[in-house]
Design a protein around this nucleic acid. Sequence first.
DNA 1: TGAATATATGAACAAATGCTCATATATTCG
DNA 2: CGAATATATGAGCATTTGTTCATATATTCA
Lengths: 121, 121
Amino acid sequence: MIDKHGIEVCDTQETHFDKVSFVRDSMPPEDELFDLAELFKIFGDTTRMKILYALFESEMCVCDIAAALDMTQSAISHQLRIIKSARLIKSRRLGRTILYSLADDHVATIIGMAKEHLEEL
Amino acid sequence: MIDKHGIEVCDTQETHFDKVSFVRDSMPPEDELFDLAELFKIFGDTTRMKILYALFESEMCVCDIAAALDMTQSAISHQLRIIKSARLIKSRRLGRTILYSLADDHVATIIGMAKEHLEEL
DNA sequence: TGAATATATGAACAAATGCTCATATATTCG
DNA sequence: CGAATATATGAGCATTTGTTCATATATTCA
């Protein structure tokens, strides 16, 4: 069966339509879901996870992060820009170098929750 | 300056080497970081976020999720497989239909933490 | 000011990702 | 059993993503 949106719908029981409507109505607005997904994307890459773990230990300059992760300065710089745009980290200039650090304790909290899930598998 | 790994290293102060070593040593093992990133990838897509929100409201069959999100049954089924492989959801068969539901309350907790971060921007 | 150093960035490219389409599998019911 | 229905899945394709390479910008210091 095809509904008014041109989407297939299970046509066995009437209750399904109620359920579908309810879920549709309770769904958060598109832009909120987009922002949430964008935030999680930051954590969805091992390089960025490593950077966040590194900054969890200490404020660091780009070059040292690159050294610690055995990666290119360019690669790290690109990733730092992405992480910073999500406001998970902040930076301050100190002469020639720029020091990055975690913006707040959300990073640790979010990672902690995820770890908990993984540990229970 | 180039270090023993062939990676550029800041060569201004000796303390940087200590910091780099410390961060290297305190970094979690590669496979743990991989698992964490893989888990966060699940949340890093609006379709999967919508599915999780839908299942947060109620146990649902594939077809109804598709209807609620105005998406193809195939697209939803593909995504459900990905989410299930991360053990965030479980399924049970009921006749012809298969009902999906959240595996535990980690989903809500993790999303909650992220929401908190976004609200404080 | 000009050389050296730290960081940022744009283009290019390979790999990963998400959707569609067609089709396979599994279950129910006549 | 065979038709109908719900779900799963493989191939193909367009988009996104992460890295590299070359180079630009910014700051220090002689």
